[in-house]
């Protein structure tokens, strides 16, 4: 079953390919999160949906529309699989 945490990790992985490890590390840190050795983001329980939106907003604010164009299709596909509601910023 796909979860909001899966969406966060998929988005971070995608953005890392576009923006590079360093930039993404900074953006994730700004959202009060960190990326572990395994490349996965740890998110406090119950905060996943909120952090997904915060992260999407931060990617957009730091690096513009390319970041959202680059991950929307992926995130929407996963959200559909998990029957998860997306924040407006990630919708088409």
């Amino acid at each position: 079953m796909v979860t909001y945490l899966d969406l966060i990790n998929a988005m971070v992985r995608r953005e890392t390919a576009i923006l590079g490890r360093e930039k993404v590390g900074k953006i994730v840190a700004k959202a009060g999160l960190s990326i572990g050795e395994d490349g996965k983001v740890a998110v406090p329980k119950g905060m996943e949906k909120q952090k997904l939106e915060e992260l999407a907003r931060s990617f957009y604010e730091e690096c513009g529309d390319i970041t959202l164009i680059g991950c929307r299709i992926l995130v929407n596909r996963l959200a559909r699989e998990g029957n998860l509601k997306l924040p407006d910023i990630l919708k088409f």
């Binding site: 995608r14 390919a17 576009i18 590079g20 930039k23 690096c63 164009i69 991950c71 929307r72 992926l74």
Partner: peptide
């Protein structure tokens, strides 16, 4: 092709992910 802020002339390990980000839309 790909979107790439952290560009290099030769593809890195996760380049396929960047290709999808560009091509799918």
């Amino acid at each position: 092709g790909a979107f790439s802020f952290d560009w290099s002339l030769y593809a890195r390990d996760d380049y396929l992910e960047a290709v999808k980000a560009f091509l799918e839309p």
